[in-house]
Design a protein around this nucleic acid. Structure first.
Lengths: 348, 348
DNA sequence: TTGAAAGCGCTAACAT
DNA sequence: ATGTTAGCGCTTTCAA
């Protein structure tokens, strides 16, 4: 019977539209409310009716629209990960988040809102506004360009946060200690003339990494040449010019500490273009330990952040925030030195 | 004046909700219809009114809800990437897709629907149904567990498709040739007793990789020991048991060709646990060339798929499909051998 | 130039 | 047990 009904009212999908709850209702000969109840397992539906509806749902391949449902309901059970773009850093976090979400009952929605033309800055506010309240129950924002927007509605945690007064929940690693370690490693190798390629001006991590560099230099009694501090913005394309300025001169540094791996890799490439050997003529150390740092040539010595862990921790934090579980709102994870092949004592 | 109005009707966000078009309308003293027109740049609004509305929008930080908008409109200008989970393979594709989407005017939404308990199989049909028609204008599905669902509504392209009659648009690489290359490389090194750890039963790529393996063996006049063909399902956790079965025996193979990198890496780990040295006692070759393959110990020799390119190509294909641009519906990209350190001649 | 009203697909009160 | 209705936030005729 149900089958006969379903056949008489073929899915609108066959005709070009998607299968809606109305299609199911018609085919099953019940109201949409009943279908909704059945699909959502509410009480107050006769077993026979429920069975029939299920059959039609199966037949038609109906699946409720996340959009329509989330417009109406309060919860969607999906957590958003907001990134500017999918590059090595954010995708590593994503791996950690994805693993941690298993078994929580939530699903993951990663949204890249920063790629569009006008939104280089402030993309996260826009993304949160567009998705928040509807569609996602909470969000983790990766390296926001502005102070994490506080939406009273949507719990938000920031990974590698913006500079500034930070009351918002955040995850980061010990950037200061990591930068000191990197610099001390270079100094220990015998370097004195060390450059630093700074990260994104607006990020706390970039500030801290520069500070760690300066502290380590000062502790070693080495004066920092202001001309050897450049800004690479964490981006390989923007690291190109400063890399050339740093290396294409007689009094070039013997080592450079780049604020992240992908710009460090770019430096190595520029060095090669200039006929410099790494690490014989120039030592380069990075930060992050993204997988790419191991596959470049030579493999990059770097400071590891526990990226997967950071993602997992961020996820747990939003979930706790959503569910009202009280907890610490700032988590800082340790960094560690990963020695590979891009650093050596300075040329004699 | 506009400011005064805005101040009199403070954003509901201040009170816990999100800022809606209604809030803006109230604050600007106009109808929601007018606000909508202004925000969407429609004609027929007095410049003065538009200015006032813009001001309020700015003040309140209003951003239209993607959800509500997409429910009403036909286009959302977002493209969905549907994955089971975010692991090295899918995130590499994501990087390529993300790069390719720059300047297209589309935004990216990656949805992981396979992590929930019941949906290990068929997650993509569910995801498409939930998001399609609303929310996303098109989708690229990564390694679907069933034949790509044809939604007349939503253009879909599959990367690394399911086995079976494949009329649907697909992107893949030359798995057959890649597998032959891998096997020939091992044979060239002097190996005769070679095992193959197969991939996911339902994927065309796994079938082709096994076929390439068998062909290369046959061409070399080496008989394949059926006992040396095991299934690892492309997953490290599921590679564990077969790896033990393969290696923990007197007549173990001298080399194994794993259907993908992450299970190859697991094999190396198991070998180490068993006290075997790689590559001295056992050679291992993988497939994919995900970044992780370079950072393991020893660095993995593997067959590279142009993952970023595949992602980019898939993106171009959905966009063309959405916009009705005629084009080829099947793209196959070449593979190549990447020699690192996990393979050597067999022990004497 | 502006606004009222319908409706996108769905859920949740509230009838019946 | 089932259906009717209102409404989530938005866009879009259609009237005024």
């Amino acid at each position: 019977m149900a089958n006969a009904a379903a056949e008489r009212w073929p899915s609108t999908a066959d005709q070009g539209g998607r299968v809606t709850i109305t299609d199911v209702a018609k085919a099953a000969g019940v109201s949409v409310a009943t279908v909704s109840k059945v699909v959502n397992g509410r009480y107050g539906v006769a077993p026979a009716t429920a069975a029939r509806v299920f059959e039609v749902v199966e037949q038609l391949g109906y699946e409720s629209s996340l959009v329509a449902r989330s417009l109406r309901r309060r919860r969607t059970n999906v957590i958003g990960v907001l990134v500017a773009e999918f590059e090595p850093f954010s995708t590593e976090l994503l791996k950690g988040i994805s693993q941690a979400i298993e078994g929580t009952g939530y699903e993951l929605l990663a949204y890249s809102g920063g790629s569009a033309d006008g939104n280089r800055v402030g993309w996260e506010r826009r993304s949160v506004s567009r998705l928040g309240g509807t569609l996602i129950d909470g969000a983790v924002i990766v390296t926001p360009t502005v102070v994490a927007p506080v939406h009273d509605n949507v719990p938000i945690v920031a990974i590698d946060p913006h500079t500034g007064p930070s009351g918002a929940p955040t995850i980061d690693s010990d950037n200061l200690a990591g930068a000191r370690t990197a610099t001390e490693y270079l100094i220990g190798l015998g370097h004195r003339r060390i450059a630093h390629l700074r990260g994104r001006e607006d990020l706390e991590s970039a500030r801290l990494r520069e500070l760690g560099f300066r502290e380590a230099m000062e502790d070693a009694g080495i004066e920092v040449d202001p001309d050897l501090i450049r800004v690479g913005n964490y981006r390989p394309d923007l690291a190109d010019a400063p890399a050339h300025e740093l290396l294409d001169r007689p009094d070039r540094p013997t080592a450079v500490f780049a604020a992240n791996d992908i710009s460090a890799i770019r430096i190595v490439e520029v060095a090669h273009e200039l006929g410099l050997r790494v690490p014989e003529d120039l030592s380069v150390i990075g930060f992050d330990n993204v997988p790419e740092s191991a596959s470049c040539n030579p493999p990059l010595t770097t400071i590891a952040q526990p990226l997967h862990q950071m993602g997992a921790e961020a996820l747990r934090m939003v979930v706790d925030l959503i569910e009202g579980t009280p907890r610490e709102h700032h988590v800082r994870l340790p960094t560690s030195l990963v020695v590979r092949a891009s650093c050596a004592p300075p040329p004699a």
